[in-house]
Nucleic acid binder design. Structure first.
Lengths: 239, 239
DNA sequence: GCCGCCCGGATTGTAGACATTTTTTCCCCG
DNA sequence: CGGGGAAAAAATGTCTACAATCCGGGCGGC
């Protein structure tokens, strides 16, 4: 029956598979920000026709990964710092709301799950596994959103976090950031378990802001610093 | 040059026009919730090929108006009461955040605009123009979201409000609701102009909850009441 | 020497045709 | 007379072909 499940999952439309492939190409940098998605080239590379490629591109447009211009095609979206800041603010509100909700309605099982994730992240920090920590970090936030019980909020959070993830991976290069972030996770979890909704909301929002700060620091390191400051005119610098 | 502008606006892809047409069909009830979007029929009716219809349907899927199932097509989405409640909660958080932000950063021009909208709604209530009030109500909320200066939040709010609008129009059938809602608008605007972010957030959230209550009342009237209560098992009743 | 114009190549937008899946219908069997 | 199953019909998924549009290079005029 495992084969049945496999066959069932394999039976998704070509567009979906193409969409996943395109996400991978964007992720890996093979399609850098600003690049145009040439329909015939991509179709040939992926061994499909232009139709599925077009549908996948339009789907990616709705998720915000690309923008399409009439008669000119789809371009990999370049997120400005301003847009990233706005997404952080949005995520802050959503994550804070979810934490507050969870503080008054957290089950024992959920608490154990969250504790386990935090423990695991600590181990991965100690073991020098930044990729593992990164994955655990995502799980922690997504679990809290999922446990909050509002599917609409969760979907919005996931959508926007994915956009940020396109560039955020580098934010945790320094091990100090990871320990700092996980300490915040632990404090937030304590507040939730204590049932203090107001404190949990505040800590969740603060944690998101800290993540934003870590992200900006990483950007500054990467780009050499001065640019972030000088480009403040429009903050149009792509990341 | 007016002709140039007109030509420029007319020069949008067929998919966009088809999408608008489909939204209209769903809006008007010609495509009731649960109905399947027959590609060849719609294509024939609209005088285009299946391609644009498909693209429009996929676009509508991302906006949440339809859901598409592999090999079965696109169906007009049926929003459950649970989902509507979750969207109200999400909107409450977003609207509250925007109001709080606006309370500390509202310009004089923005204040005048909002005041004018509220005045206009009052006039339309007095003039017995529920459709006009309904439009003004949307403008008021969207203006606050726009003035808050976070495009990401605004986009999320608009997207989800549009889903609710599919059914919310009937919520204001009783004139008492309109007066009540506009009184809340006025109080919220006063808080914003007073610069009290905390109060503005609270009033904005409260206003959204009131809107949810008005909506539930309208639903109860429409469906005869008992169903909402008994269907609480899964709240799967479509609206 | 520079600007504007025109034309060819390339690319996207749309239409129509074929393949695959789903749904419906109808017949046969119990 | 009701239910199961197979075949036909219909609908979607995908592919190929054609039309409209946009970008870059070269030419002529000022």
């Amino acid at each position: 029956m495992s084969t049945i499940r496999a066959a069932r999952e394999a039976a998704q439309s070509l567009s979906s598979k193409v969409q996943t492939a395109l996400e991978g190409l964007i992720w890996s940098g093979a399609l850098p920000p600003g690049a145009r998605l040439n329909e015939v080239t991509l179709a040939r590379q992926l061994g499909v026709s232009r139709g599925p490629v077009r549908e996948a591109a339009r789907a990616l447009e709705r998720t915000g990964l690309v923008t399409v211009i009439l008669n000119r095609g789809a371009f990999v979206r370049t997120l400005t710092i301003d847009e990233a800041m706005q997404i952080y603010e949005l995520n802050s509100v959503l994550f804070g709301s979810a934490a507050a909700r969870l503080a008054v309605a957290c089950t024992g099982e959920q608490a154990m799950t969250l504790r386990a994730v935090v423990e695991q992240m600590d181990q991965r920090i100690a073991g020098g596994d930044p990729e593992g920590f990164f994955a655990g970090n995502i799980v922690f936030h997504e679990q809290i959103m999922a446990f909050s019980g509002n599917a609409a909020m969760e979907a919005v959070y996931l959508d926007h976090t994915r956009k940020l993830l396109l560039m955020r991976r580098r934010s945790f290069d320094r091990s100090g950031s990871m320990a700092e972030a996980n300490a915040e996770h632990r404090r937030l979890l304590d507040s939730i378990l204590a049932g203090d909704a107001s404190l949990a909301r505040q800590q969740a929002e603060q944690h998101t802001r800290s993540g934003r700060a870590r992200f900006l620091t990483a950007i500054a390191y990467k780009d050499g610093g001065p640019r972030v400051g000088t480009a403040a005119e429009k903050n149009a610098a792509t990341i």
